[in-house]
Design a protein around this nucleic acid. Sequence first.
DNA 1: CAATATAGTTAATGATCGTTAACGTAGCGA
DNA 2: TCGCTACGTTAACGATCATTAACTATATTG
Lengths: 226, 226
Amino acid sequence: MIVNVAMLTLTNQIRLVSEPMTNEAPDGTGRGGATSRREQLLSAAAELFARYGFHGVGIDDIGAAVGISGPALYRHFRGKDAMLGEMLTGISERLLHGGRARTVNTPDPITALEALVAWHVEFALTNSALITVHLRDLDSLAEPDRHRVRELQRGYVEVWVETLLQCRPDLSEHTARASAHAVLGLINSTPHSARLDPTRMSELLHRMAMNALLVERREGDEADGA
Amino acid sequence: MIVNVAMLTLTNQIRLVSEPMTNEAPDGTGRGGATSRREQLLSAAAELFARYGFHGVGIDDIGAAVGISGPALYRHFRGKDAMLGEMLTGISERLLHGGRARTVNTPDPITALEALVAWHVEFALTNSALITVHLRDLDSLAEPDRHRVRELQRGYVEVWVETLLQCRPDLSEHTARASAHAVLGLINSTPHSARLDPTRMSELLHRMAMNALLVERREGDEADGA
DNA sequence: CAATATAGTTAATGATCGTTAACGTAGCGA
DNA sequence: TCGCTACGTTAACGATCATTAACTATATTG
């Protein structure tokens, strides 16, 4: 339904002729250095989910994207839902831990905020498919995973809110949270954007984000209390 | 699959008991003043598509959301695809025409940019479901509609780029386009955001957007030429 | 009042899709 | 060499879902 039929059959042909039959890590858990089948599948699925949405991608499409066909996927994942779950919890954990790591032991709040912005910009530019899926298909997740992802997301936003409040004591917590969401939206727009080269794009997003966050506001912002 | 079963059956009951059987506009094209069935269906579908994605919503879910059941939808639309098509072309046209209308006959470029920001902020706050669908399900569109929507989107971004370039002659066109996308991402983040009350939210987004756009840059931005 | 258009209903159909079953094979350790 | 495991394959199953068919009721109109 998605890729052309030529590619479906061709990849199979190619696999039989030229592929050295996965000589990387012996175990299926992907502990080895080279990219295991699991990682190949997750990466391909992320790309497909980003473009067509979770429900718009079939198991056969995912398999075909890495040169295997259809149900072979069940040798590596418990199912299609499990792939999405692993994908989203993975990205959420990486974001949260990266954000935390970059804000502790900083000399002053502004430096911490700069580090946070730099971290998210770098992540979004490097993993744009994951960013798209994480914005798009969270509600396609089954309950145990969805709750976990939401908690991780909340924690990540909390890192932003705390850092921002230290830079801007004039803001209410509500306003700081809304500002954080807005700037994350700005940075996460990269997948849809006409991109410059990575260096310029990174600089541009960084500067826009900092200036959006550090605007001086006039009187009466935190009047709404709780 | 989406709404609970109780609601599905209950709405049917309620319809039989209390609904005055659509006494608004006589024609099905929705020319009348009150909301016609078509508009009810479009609105409900937008909400559902926004939350679950186009492929995640069934025809029965859409019908149930307005108190009719399943295939009754085909009395108003040629199919599910046609609903999405109408939804996305509609929103894209409204955005483009609104943007154009607000930038002609402005005294100076900065005022035009303010008007553009105000327009998009107002639109995004008022139609957050449509914004989400339009970011999310464009690729679920069949070919004639998709092309049209993309052209309208491109035109809208072009309005932003032209206005921004008048305010910021120091920017290259590439940089202006990337900036426009980024600010649209900032404003479009509203659906995912912990919202303040509309007035404060609107002010916050407006101020953040203007400051993101009107940052003074240091030397050497437009050096990349074409 | 008959006729017709409008807007519903339920049942059936056909395609798609996730998942499982049954089976094959290459590599490897005892 | 004998099995065991990892990793594929294709075929079948069952559910879901968009769409169509067949039918009903209400309201307007000549």
